[in-house]
Amino acid sequence: MSGPNLLLTRIDNRLIHGQVGVTWVNHLGANLVVVANDKVAEDEVQQNLMDMVLPDVIQTRYFTLQKTIDIIHKAAPRQKIFIVVRDVHDALVLKEGGVPIDHINVGNMHFEEGKKQISSTVSVDDKDIAAFKRLDELGVELDLRRVPEERGQNIMKLL
């Protein structure tokens, strides 16, 4: 049996918003967006707000990281899955937990105290850099780009 039909995993601390809900979903041809985040999995208000961004034909699931790890391999072949996580640490937990992530789109990581800005939309600290290096060691392609039309950059060259 083959693995889940995982189209892409995106790191975006905003999770589902216009860019993800319209541009990326259409570009990928996804019919299921899985938000893998422990806090959002328990927050129905946030889930409802994110659902409003997506067309009705796109299904969403809001899972904890562990639930994503536990059930991703049970996905039906017809499910074209786009996983969205809040940060690089969530992505690393999924990868190390056995989710077959081989390509990550690094879209948005807000600037905050103690982080350095490496692109117009991505800021990192030492823990983020260590997590990106671990993903790179695990063979994950790390592509920094906001929108599909943009030319991506290997984030490892910017760290």
Rank of each mutant, 00 (worst) to 15 (best):
V124K: 04
L158N: 02
T60Y: 00
K39Y: 13
V106A: 05
D56P: 15
L32P: 14
V45D: 07
H27E: 13
L138T: 07
Y62H: 13
V22N: 04
V33P: 10
D128R: 03
V35M: 11
M109H: 08
G29V: 10
V88N: 01
Q66S: 14
A30L: 06
H103M: 10
T23G: 11
H89V: 08
E149A: 09
F63I: 01
E137V: 07
V22Y: 03
R10P: 06
G21I: 05
I71N: 08
D87C: 04
Q153Y: 12
G139E: 15
V140D: 11
G98A: 03
T121M: 12
E150Y: 07
F82A: 00
E149L: 09
K133F: 11
H17D: 11
G139F: 14
N37Q: 06
I81E: 13
K39F: 11
R151M: 08
G21K: 01
S2N: 12
R10F: 06
K127E: 15
V93Y: 03
H110N: 15
L135P: 06
A130P: 14
I118F: 01
G29M: 12
E149P: 00
L54P: 04
L32W: 07
V20H: 13
D102Y: 04
V93K: 14
P148Q: 13
T121C: 08
A30W: 10
V122I: 15
S2R: 07
R146D: 15
V88F: 06
G152L: 06
N37P: 01
P100Y: 05
F111L: 14
V57L: 09
D143A: 06
P4Q: 02
